[in-house]
Design a protein around this nucleic acid. Sequence first.
DNA 1: TTGTAGGCGTTATCAA
DNA 2: TTGATAACGCCTACAA
Lengths: 327, 327
Amino acid sequence: MATIKQVAQAAGVSVATVSRVINESGYVHEDTRRRVEDAVRELNYTPNEVARSLYKRKSKLIGLLLPDITNPYFPQLARGVEDRLQEQDYRVILGNSDESREKETEYIQTFLQNNVVGVISSTHAPDHEMYTGLKIPVVFLDRTVNDSPSVYADGREGGRQAARELVQRGSARIVIIQGPAAVRTAMDRYEGAAEQLEKLGASYQVLKTDSFSFTEAEAWAQELFRQYPDSDGIIASNDIVAFAVLQEAVRLGKKVPQDVQIIGFDDIPLSRLLTPSLSTIHQPAYEMGRAAADLIIALIEEAYVERRNIQFAVSFIERQTTRKVEL
Amino acid sequence: MATIKQVAQAAGVSVATVSRVINESGYVHEDTRRRVEDAVRELNYTPNEVARSLYKRKSKLIGLLLPDITNPYFPQLARGVEDRLQEQDYRVILGNSDESREKETEYIQTFLQNNVVGVISSTHAPDHEMYTGLKIPVVFLDRTVNDSPSVYADGREGGRQAARELVQRGSARIVIIQGPAAVRTAMDRYEGAAEQLEKLGASYQVLKTDSFSFTEAEAWAQELFRQYPDSDGIIASNDIVAFAVLQEAVRLGKKVPQDVQIIGFDDIPLSRLLTPSLSTIHQPAYEMGRAAADLIIALIEEAYVERRNIQFAVSFIERQTTRKVEL
DNA sequence: TTGTAGGCGTTATCAA
DNA sequence: TTGATAACGCCTACAA
C-alpha cells in the first residue's frame, strides 16, 4: 500500500496538496491536480483509513450486534444493513451477542476502540447503560424503543392478524405459543394475538416457551400437542417453531390445514418452500435492515433527524397451512 | 474514551510507563505498576486500537467475504468464524460479494485500508490476482484450493455417498441436479455422484442449473419433473433445492419417499424440521468456520503452519425423504 | 495556489 | 526503572 508521502513525491508536490486533491478540499491548480491524479493512479494509492480514523477520531465502520446470525431471521436483516451501508462506503463489524450482556458489552467496547461511528443493535437491553452512555448514535433494530432511534415491525398488529385469520378460517380451539418473555417483540406478537382473540370472543390457550432455538422447537411442538391434543389452530411464535409444529402435527397423523391450521411469524425465505408451505406473518426484514442503515447514517451525518422511530407494517401471507376462507 | 496520556497524568508517570504496563513489556516497578493500574481502572481506559493499528501497521481485524449471508448455509460458517475469532480477540468485518469480482475487489481494498491482518473468503476466484497479490494471509473457506490455505468439505465423497445411498435404497431412475458450473464445490458433488452411479452401473440423468437461489429453486423443481416425470430418486445440489423438489413432488401427488427419494446437501438446520425431514449430506459448517478462523490466526501469528489445507468429512444423514434400507 | 508543521493515540528506541 | 521523543499516515490550520 502506497502512502500519501510517496504519491506526493511521485507528483513532485507536498502531502498537503495530495490530501487536497483526494479530499477535494481547498484550492489546487488544474495542472497539479492532474499530476497528482496520475501519481495516485500510478501507485494505486488509496488512503489509509486507519490514519484517517485516528486523525478524525472517527471511522467508516459501524458495529452490528445481532443475537445470532444463525437464526434464519437475522441474515436478512444483516444483509439489508450491509447492502445499504456498503453503498455509502461504510463497513460493518459484526458481533453475535447470544443475548448475553457480557458479550454485548465486550463488543461495544471493541467497537469503540475501533472508532466505529455508530452501532446497530438487536438487543433486549436497549436501556442498559452500555447503550445509554454511548456518545455515538445507536439504532435498535427489531426492537421497539420509544425514546431511542429504532426500526421495528408492528408485532402487535401481526399477532392480531394471525388471530383474525385463524378465527376467520374456522379455528375454534386456538393455542398461542408465547415466545421468551424477555423478548419484547415476542411479547408484542403474543399480546396482539391474545387481545384479538378476546375481542372476537374466541377461547384460546397459551403455551409458554423461553427461546427461539432450533433444538428446543421440537420439544415445544410435542409439549403443545400433549397439553392441547385437540387444538385446531396454532399461532406459533416464529416460523421455526411453526416448522416444528407442522412436523409434529403430521407425525401425529393430523391433517394440515384440515385438522389444524398453523400460522408462523417472520416469513423466513424457506417457509415458502416448506410442504405444505407455511402461512405466516411477513416482516420485511431486508427492508428493515436497510432502514436501520439509513437511519444510522442520517444520525451520523446529519444534525437533526426527524423520523427516529420507524415502524414497518406486517402482512399475512396466505399459504397452505391455513384453509381457504369461504367468500 | 480516556487516552493513554490521561492515564499517565492521573498516575503521575509518563505515557511510556503506562504503555509498558498495559503491554506487559519492559521493566516497571511494582509500586508504579499498581498506580497505573489504578488509574486505568479509574478512567476506564482501554487502548485505542486505531492508534495501535496505525503504529504497528496491523490491526485485530479480519475480513470475512461471503457470497451471501442470506443463503442458509453461510450463517453457520460465519458464526463458526466469528466465535473462534472473538475468542482470540479478533474482530470481523463482513462483506457480501454476490460472487461479483467487482464487489470482491472493492471489499478487499477496504479491508486493506483498514489494516486487516487476514481475510477469509468464500470465493469462486481464488486464483484471481486480488488474492494472489495480497501480502496478508488468505484462507479460502468452502472452496478447494490446492496451493493456498483452505478449509473445505469433501464434496466429491458427499456426491458418492448420496449416489450410493439412493441406489442402495432402490432408486433406479436417478436425476442429479447439477449446481452452477462455476462453483467448484457444486461440481465436486455432481462429479462424485455421477462417478459413483456409473461405477454402480446405474443409469441417471442430469439437470443443469446455474444458481443456488431461493427464487429459482422452484422453477428447477418444476423443470425437473417435467423433463423426468418418472424419476424415482433425486440428488439435489443443496438443501434449498431439495426443499423445492420435495414441494413439487408433493404437488404432483408423488409420495416421498415411496415414489421418489430425495437427498439434499449441506444439512442446513431447518432440514431437520422439514416434513418429511430431509435426508441429506451433512457438512460440518460451524466447525469449518472455526477451522478457518484457527487457520488464519495461525498464519498470522506463526512463522510456519503445517496443515494449510483442511478437509472435512461429510456424512449421510438419514431422515425421511429416503426409504429405510432393508437389512 | 502551495508547503510547513503540529497533532490524532500508541509503541519502541534511546538516554538518563 | 523511567521518561523524552520519533514515527505510524493522514488532515488542517497557518504561513508563504
